[in-house]
Design a protein around this nucleic acid. Sequence first.
RNA 1: GCCUUCGUAGUUCAACGGAUAGAACGGAAGUUUCCUAAACUUUAAAUACAGGUUCGAUUCCUGUCGAAGGCACCA
Length: 594
Amino acid sequence: MFNFLKDTIAEIVTENFQQTISPATIQINATPTDYVGDCTIVVFPFTKFSKLNPEATGNFFGEKLKEKNSHIESYNVVKGFLNIVFNQQFWLAELSKANADKTFGQLATTGRKVMVEYSSPNTNKPLHLGHIRNNLLGFSIAEILKACGNEVIKTTLVNDRGIHICKSMLAWQKFGNGETPASSGLKGDHLVGKYYVEFDKAYKAEIKNLVATENISEEDAAKKSLLMQETQQMLLDWEAGKPEVMQLWTMMNSWVYDGFAITYKKLGVDFDKAYYESNTYLLGKSAVAEGLQQGVFVQDKDKSVWIDLTADGLDRKILQRKDGTSVYITQDIGTAQLKYDDYKMDESIYVVGNEQDYHFKVLQLILKKLDKVYADGIYHLSYGMVELPSGKMKSREGTVVDADDLMDEMIEAAKQKTIELGKLDDGFSEIEKEKLFYTIGMGALKYFLLKVDPKKKMMFNPDESIELQGNTGPFIQYTHARICSILRNNKLQRISLEDSIKNYPLHSLEKALIQEIYLFPIKIEEAGKEHNPAVIANYVYNLAKEFNSFYTELSVLKAEHESEIQFRLHLVEMVAKVINKSMKLLGIEVPEKM
RNA sequence: GCCUUCGUAGUUCAACGGAUAGAACGGAAGUUUCCUAAACUUUAAAUACAGGUUCGAUUCCUGUCGAAGGCACCA
């Protein structure tokens, strides 16, 4: 923030104290509202070489800054804080610049290529609330990185094979009676998920039965389970390419993909490229050979392959089982290579839950040891679990908040609320109404999940968590709709922003809005750097709040001079633009009327 | 057992080591002859505990208590 001041401060230090400091280490914040100033420089660190007390140091720097920068109107010092006030010309010039910039909010091209892998579903069950957080984060961070000037490739790695898939398949074979999405009326992914739950039920019943009748431990019962043995046989058959199994697998997966397509469309997310684990699960083999040859991996007597990471503070990790099959991390090593071969990206972001923190630490370290050029570009965008009041969601037991159900409930809630408020009296066709309910409901859901720092776990109470008032998506959408309404009713005249500015003194609420607008590109950069959409969510909420205060206290249309009204209309139009662009970065639509 | 995260108003979330710890919901009290009241204004309410580091600690370090997650040839 205010980086031009940092450079000037560094200059002052060099000229007066024969020291060099890095501009990046200087702290400049927005001034808290109770103090006079636009920004605040923390001068405590400078007292070391200024040999003055904090107040005197602040005054010294304030004076020097004012000499060097014509934009500074005044300064004041409170304790060790130097508050700077910029003059009106500065803020108006910034507003003009932003207004004239057709691509405001699009940062300069970096020439960097970034891959974002997200969603990465399993094909044995429908998506749930946790997946929604993943999808929204992935989509949003991709948008933010684009705005930061990067070329972005969105990918997903579909987990379409493995023992869990076989469980659904086996249960369907045994209990399904040929049920299909068409015959049952169920969405394909829900139908398959139903049999995944069926399997778990039948399996638990079998174990219970075995324990009771044969008087053995649960552990032993698990080994004797016929269901589990059949499932494992099915996995072997799949790997051998047995036609009946492949046919069943293809059919059931296609049901799931049809279901996912609907969910993704409703969520508003998409991918440039999908990788399938059924194509990549054997890729780790060559990596194992490579690692052994380089001496990075070791092979035990039983033929299993390992890497010893104890010197790096981690564990000894298996990479290939004694039977020669590869494990999860080995596949990831292979897939990382495949992705790099395909795209040669500079950065590769994995949007994956924080229960895999350790896994990604290990993955990156192994790739480094293998001297892979792309190892440093790997970034695990780790996000916290979404928790329910009742505890953790368990898809095996079916105790989940289903993604499709939740979206429908949100849209329904938006509908009820909208009708209750009497918002739709005029000018909405049935189609427009449905579209509006969808936009508001999804806006509420998306904002709710994105406003929280991704790293942190979050609590979701299905009964009361999602509000449409307060710090919510609909609040921001509503603010946008009000501005659009003002602009509809009061067409901007042909007076340009520059001509409407003239020289009347800016009201503090007008200035506050200009300051928020000024922050937009800075926030985008910050969000990109931190891989954190919540930065944008908090920003746009503040902007909307700032507008609401302005709107309530000032009125756009009742200024003293016509040029001032025109100026306010320009200003407010700019606010709407920034809200629109910010929300786009979050993947949230903003209606013009609601 | 070892490792990693996290404990902030009643609740859900904020706060690059910076000023008097901010919002929202819920509670209390107000504001619609006027641009959309899903709004605005006022008000009560919190850093788990004990030490340490320094000009300054919710933030960094140590310990205690509490919560979640990971590690054993699952993905």
